[in-house]
Design a binder for these strands. Sequence first.
DNA 1: CGACAGCTTGATCGATCTCAAGCACGGTGG
DNA 2: CCACCGTGCTTGAGATCGATCAAGCTGTCG
Lengths: 249, 249
Amino acid sequence: MTSLTFNRIPKCHFRGISLPDGEPLQCPQCIANKLNYCGAMDLELGTRLQAIVTRIRFERGRTLFTQEDSADYVFALAAGVVSCSHYMADGRRQIMGFLFPGDYVGMATGERYSYSGEAVTAGEMCRFSRGPFNKLLMKFCDFEKHFFQEVSNELAEAQKHVLILGRKDAMERVASFLLMLDERENRYGAHDNIELPMMRAEIADYLGLAIETVSRMFTKLRNRRIIAAPDAHLVRILDPGGLRAIASE
Amino acid sequence: MTSLTFNRIPKCHFRGISLPDGEPLQCPQCIANKLNYCGAMDLELGTRLQAIVTRIRFERGRTLFTQEDSADYVFALAAGVVSCSHYMADGRRQIMGFLFPGDYVGMATGERYSYSGEAVTAGEMCRFSRGPFNKLLMKFCDFEKHFFQEVSNELAEAQKHVLILGRKDAMERVASFLLMLDERENRYGAHDNIELPMMRAEIADYLGLAIETVSRMFTKLRNRRIIAAPDAHLVRILDPGGLRAIASE
DNA sequence: CGACAGCTTGATCGATCTCAAGCACGGTGG
DNA sequence: CCACCGTGCTTGAGATCGATCAAGCTGTCG
């Protein structure tokens, strides 16, 4: 069966991801997932996208694009996790968000990306030249309506982020962060553990805290039996209600 | 002359705004300002918008919509300044942004507004039922492309906000805030003073600070001759370079 | 086995919040 | 006209949360 399916690409193992050798992941599939309103067009759209895509594998730590780069490409993440960080002149970093498989970046941007994309884990992404990509989607789909929705979602997330950073204390921030990851995983089916693909430093720079503070909050949550954490990158929520209360949404 | 012009509505006097009695401001004009790509259609679009608009005047302090309200309306601000605040259960407030004449709200939202709109000054806004408004614009204009741009801008602003809240100290936050207001006024022509229509409490809740801290930072900037402040709601930037350095963009 | 990176924990420091007081201004009523 | 009051702003003093500095712990890799 060669027709594109609308299943999400398999939930990736964020850490120690093992990509199939040789045969790259089907990028158009993740595009199609996001564009699934396209209906009957998919197969041809997929083929056309295949024709203009560049697939790029990367290792943890690799910088995929920087905030100074001219925004010539649109990226779709096929596997792995990527952070979007803004660096200040003196080196301070604010992580704006994390990209997970199926996420885009580079659509809603001006002349330049305003943040840098860095690989939190190994992974693979699909790169499209902005022009042809836009033209193609515009031609095939009711393009803007769809991406309007996408950007709206991103905006809502940014506003949640503003609330966390502006008015929540350290405990509330960490709790909110865990709930966000939990909700994300819930969207793709039941799960018992939350996987934390990122390091403490990345959580800290997302939450506007110091590494040590993040660590202390995890410890506190563990001691209070709100969560269990078999290792630093795995969390099981023992008391969802308690966690939600702590996050004080 | 009845044809719509593309001039911005007159720069409003934020505080002590005096609205012409009887004859309401021409709302479709502010819509048209934002939609000026519509070109030849404007006149008819304006007329149709006239037909579905409800104009609402409001005094300082009035709540225009709340975060619990079902998002049935799109608003366009014709005059005055409005804050968009998210309230937490215990009363903490985070101001997500301020609306100025010509700004919209309610386009990029889900089922409900996720924040409340409150009048920072007296003003006037135009209210459209979401359905007819969308239909109308969709019919007349290359609607989504335009609003995609709008939401993208909003997203960029939210991300700037995230950076301010996540990684800047009190001094940098206040400096950044003043620069934002300055840039906004610059877009509409030269000016010598920045008007601060909002109170210290609102600046504080936008910047994630306490009122007292905001006040102290103003004092510090004044003492260092970076700004002059004839009164609490007027600021003149004496040393733009210095202010930019302090904001450490 | 040693070196290193990432995480945790402890002790101290400091920026910002909180609490409290005083000031400036505008509106109101005697 | 002026005393009074309320609101918003500023300033000061002390408390607090989270940052910073420093050390130790754990697991991985060569």
